[in-house]
Amino acid sequence: MADDSAGADGASGLESRLAAYLAEKLPDASDVRVDGLERIFGGASRETYRFVLRTHRDGEDESRRLILRRDPPGSLIETDRAVEYAAYRAFYGTAVPVPEALWLEEDGNRLDYPFFIMEELAGLQSSAQAAAPHAAKLTPQKWSILGEISKADPAALGLDNVMAAVAADECWQRELSYWENEIDRHELCPQPIARAAIRWLRRHPPPPAQRVSVVHADYRTGNYLFDEEGTIRGILDWEMAHLGDPLEDLAWGLNPVWQSADGRVGAIATREEAISIWEEASGLRADPEALHWWELFSSVKGQAIWVSSAKEFTDGKNQDLILALAGWLMGNRQDRAILAAMGHHVS
């Protein structure tokens, strides 16, 4: 496993190797240094580190807080870092707030694994507990930003060049087949609840997508940053982004596993508020039957992710404890969500 405490230039010399890489990228700067490199908890599909880049340029000392997102030896989900990087670049400066992505390096020889570097949106919060007190202000922002993603033209953003095309009537099938295959590949024990849901989803396909949009695919609490005033400053973790049915994103955000104990979606909004705000911002309609299909699908996808996390941990590819926790806790919650969506409740 890669070094976690990479600061003070630990055993692998990550700090100095990162500084050498950045010096090549900044030929007009001198005295390029990396200070305070430390790993951030979470982000099981990428190792995430924060650091301060210090340089001397045009007679001035400069510093900038940056983030290193590096592929881990094993990953919760197998994602294309180039797509994630492209999504940050595409949405930067639009109505969808994202940090500036700076460099992508797909050569695994530089820092042991491929990586990219982006600006750090420092001092911000993203947990459900932190979000709840700002619910009134966060709710319209969170769901209207998702509406902006759904409304965005992938071709105008240049994302149709990096994301696989899909026809409006094939979005559901492609996603369902992908995540079913993930369960096939990674399940350590039979999943009778998820399998029943998959059979139902195949027997009751949704209507074609109203439009083929950019789908963030992990739009939830924990993946957006907001300041102490309750203003959302950045949408993060685009690692599963793809083209597809925008209802997929709405449904994922409504997934019961992200709800607070009082049933507020993402711990901040009522279901009706979230849907209404998204509809207004996107110009699309959340047909209840179609949305139900995508909500059940989102629980199958969630279970596929938790099954994969248990597999990665068990195989020793990635022994981040958060993977074990996900396998135990989230897997059970996701089964409950599937049962509820199919009209069967756990007393």
């Binding site: 009778p192 926790l325 806790l329 059970n332 919650r333 089964d335 049962l339 069967h344 409740h345 756990v346």
Partner: peptide, 15 residues
């Protein structure tokens, strides 16, 4: 299936 989900719940983790 509902009973099996209940049997696997982990109340110590905020079930």
């Amino acid at each position: 299936l509902a009973a099996s989900t209940r049997r696997r719940a982990l109340p110590t983790l905020g079930d």
